Structures are given as C-alpha cells and as structure tokens.
Amino acid sequence: MLIGAVFGALSKFPYLWAISTANVMLIAIFAFVNMSLFFSCHNGVWKSFFAEKFPAPVRFTGKAVSNQLGNLLAGLRTRGAGW
C-alpha cells in the first residue's frame, strides 16, 4: 500500500508534464502506468488493510461504518456543503 501511494504520488509529476506538452502518446503512457500499476497497488490492499484495524467481533461493522461515513463526508464536501 505504501509503495502504491509513494510511486503514485511521484508519477503525477511526469503525467502533468505530459499534459502540458499536449503529447497524446505520453499522456496515455503515464496515465496507463499510474492507473494500472500504482492505483492497483493501493486499491487491491486497502480493503483487507482497513478491516484488520478492527477486532474480529466488530470487523465488518467497523469497516463498513467508517467507509460509509468517509464517503458521506466526502460527498458533502464535493456538493458544496460549505465547510
């Protein structure tokens, strides 16, 4: 998860550079690398990583409630709730 986060953050700079050059091939290459390699490293692990943060009797509930609460807060933020 850490590898995906670090290299995903570092791969943003060449991707943005490719966008500034308007080279479609470079944009496609950097987008593919970022989305297929580094995003997948994070996306494949986060479900089990966060589930292990809760004790076994409340694991499913803790993960589900915290995930949905985070989605709710992010949704309010993007809808212009004015925080």
Rank of each mutant, 00 (worst) to 15 (best):
T61Y: 09
F60T: 14
L10M: 15
G4R: 06
G44E: 06
N71T: 12
I3Q: 07
N67F: 13
A74C: 08
L72F: 15
K47M: 09
A9E: 05
M1R: 11
R77Q: 12
V24R: 15
A28S: 11
P57K: 06
T21I: 05
M1P: 06
V58Y: 04
F7K: 10
V45G: 03
V24C: 03
W83P: 01
V24I: 14
G44Q: 06
I29T: 03
A18Y: 04
G80A: 05
P14R: 08
N34L: 13
I27S: 01
F39C: 12
F39N: 11
M35K: 13
A9F: 15
R79I: 12
P57A: 02
G62S: 05
G62T: 01
S11Q: 14
A31E: 10
W83K: 09
V65E: 01
A28D: 07
L69W: 09
Y15T: 08
L10F: 15
F13T: 08
S40G: 00
F39T: 11
G70N: 03
E52A: 08
A56V: 09
G80I: 07
G62M: 02
I3G: 10
A22Y: 09
P57C: 03
P55Q: 06
A18C: 01
G4H: 05
M25D: 12
A22M: 05
V65S: 04
A9S: 13
G62C: 03
A5H: 06
L69K: 05
L16C: 10
L69Q: 02
A81Y: 09
M25N: 10
G70A: 01
Y15S: 03
G75R: 07
R59A: 05
I29W: 01
A64D: 02
F32A: 13
A5G: 01
F13M: 15
P55F: 03
K53I: 13
Y15C: 00
K12N: 10
K53H: 14
I27G: 02
T61K: 04
V33D: 07
I3W: 09
L37Q: 08
L16M: 14
F7T: 05
L26K: 04
C41F: 15
A18K: 06
K63E: 02
M35C: 06
L73N: 01
F32M: 11
T61P: 00
A51R: 14
V24E: 15
G75P: 02
I29E: 00
G82P: 08
W83R: 08
A64N: 01
F50C: 08
A74G: 00
F54D: 04
L73T: 00
F30Y: 11
E52R: 08
K53A: 14
F54G: 02
L72Q: 05
L76F: 15
G82A: 07
A64H: 01
S11W: 15
Q68P: 02
F30P: 01
M1Q: 12
T21P: 00
K47Q: 11
N43W: 11
I29M: 06
V58I: 15
C41L: 14
A74Y: 04
R79A: 15
V24T: 15
K63G: 00
K53T: 09
Y15I: 02
F7M: 14
F38V: 12
G70D: 02
C41Q: 05
W83I: 05
K12M: 13
F38C: 08
S48A: 14
W17C: 05
A9Y: 08
A18W: 07
K47C: 04
A74L: 14
A22I: 05
N43R: 11
Y15N: 09
A28P: 03
K47H: 10
F13R: 13
A51Q: 05
F38G: 06
